[in-house]
Simulated assay, not measured.
Amino acid sequence: MKGQEWYQADEVAEEYDDKRFSKGGQLIDRREKAAVLEAIMPVEDRSILEIACGTGRFTVMLAAQGADVVGLDISTAMLQQGRRKAQGRELAGTLEFLRGDAGRLPFPDDHFDTVIAMRFFHLADDPEAFLREMRRVSRDQIVFDTFNRFSARSMYNWALPMGSRLYSKSEVSELLAKTDLTLVEVEDDFLAPYGLYRSIPNALASPIRALDTTVGGSPVTDHFASVSYWNTRLR
């Protein structure tokens, strides 16, 4: 995995949510959570594994909605942030945080209803191997996102501390075929890059987001979207 040392640093974990999901980044957080919920609802009583759960944005949300969730991450510091986030929350389901390697998941075959991985595949050095491992422990559904090759993100990708792997639609389709996954739906979003939203106040980001959503609704502009949300099922 790219950037493991950077990602596991205490100071990165402490500042992770504030840097990415404050100001205009709140719009990104809201949209990503909506994409996950839309893909797997209803979540009540479903067993869900989140790969690279980070600070627990999705795990806590899903447990609050009644799912039985395991959040797995390689970073102890990130997991600590997730546990703090869950403290004092009323959770209708269950929530457990585990440290582990996404390439060697510590679970038996067909253990979870759904496996999700958000903000993960742009760091994967062997995406097919990771997807196969996710498929092994799922008995029904896999949901993940990718950053796209023909998006504005490609212009500043070189400046990111760990670099990002960018995907074309055909590349992801090939990965799904190789791992025996059937595409249920793919949603494309964010013509404007994430970095723009994170750098400006919400009051400025909101009208940009409204324009982005309107223009991005065209099949032509989907090709240039920053991110795609993939909802897949086992064959």
Results as ranks from 00 to 15, higher is better:
1 M>S: 13
1 M>R: 09
2 K>Y: 11
2 K>S: 12
4 Q>K: 15
5 E>N: 13
9 A>K: 15
12 V>K: 13
13 A>Y: 02
14 E>S: 11
16 Y>L: 09
18 D>Q: 14
19 K>N: 14
19 K>L: 13
19 K>I: 10
20 R>L: 14
21 F>V: 06
23 K>Q: 15
24 G>E: 01
30 R>G: 07
31 R>C: 07
32 E>T: 12
34 A>K: 14
36 V>E: 01
39 A>R: 02
44 E>I: 02
45 D>W: 00
45 D>P: 00
46 R>A: 06
48 I>P: 01
49 L>F: 07
50 E>P: 01
50 E>T: 03
51 I>V: 14
53 C>I: 05
54 G>K: 00
54 G>Q: 07
54 G>R: 08
58 F>G: 00
58 F>N: 08
60 V>D: 05
60 V>C: 10
68 D>P: 09
72 L>W: 08
74 I>Y: 07
75 S>V: 05
76 T>C: 09
76 T>F: 04
79 L>A: 00
81 Q>M: 13
82 G>P: 07
92 A>Q: 14
102 A>C: 14
104 R>E: 12
107 F>V: 03
108 P>D: 12
110 D>S: 10
112 F>K: 07
117 A>K: 04
118 M>A: 01
119 R>M: 05
121 F>H: 02
122 H>I: 10
122 H>Q: 13
124 A>H: 07
125 D>H: 08
127 P>M: 01
128 E>T: 08
129 A>I: 06
130 F>W: 08
130 F>R: 06
131 L>V: 04
136 R>Y: 01
136 R>G: 04
139 R>N: 12
140 D>M: 09
140 D>V: 02
141 Q>G: 00
143 V>H: 03
145 D>V: 00
145 D>K: 02
148 N>F: 11
149 R>L: 12
156 Y>I: 11
157 N>R: 04
159 A>S: 14
159 A>G: 01
163 G>N: 12
163 G>H: 05
164 S>P: 09
167 Y>E: 00
169 K>E: 14
171 E>C: 10
174 E>R: 15
177 A>I: 11
178 K>A: 15
181 L>Q: 03
182 T>K: 15
183 L>H: 04
185 E>G: 11
187 E>S: 13
189 D>M: 04
193 P>N: 11
196 L>C: 06
196 L>H: 05
198 R>H: 11
199 S>Q: 10
199 S>M: 08
200 I>S: 04
201 P>H: 10
201 P>D: 04
201 P>V: 01
201 P>M: 04
202 N>C: 09
206 S>W: 13
207 P>D: 04
207 P>Y: 07
212 D>L: 05
212 D>V: 08
213 T>C: 03
215 V>H: 01
218 S>A: 03
219 P>T: 07
220 V>G: 07
220 V>Y: 13
223 H>F: 15
223 H>K: 14
223 H>W: 12
226 S>T: 09
227 V>S: 02
228 S>G: 08
231 N>L: 12
233 R>K: 15
235 R>A: 14
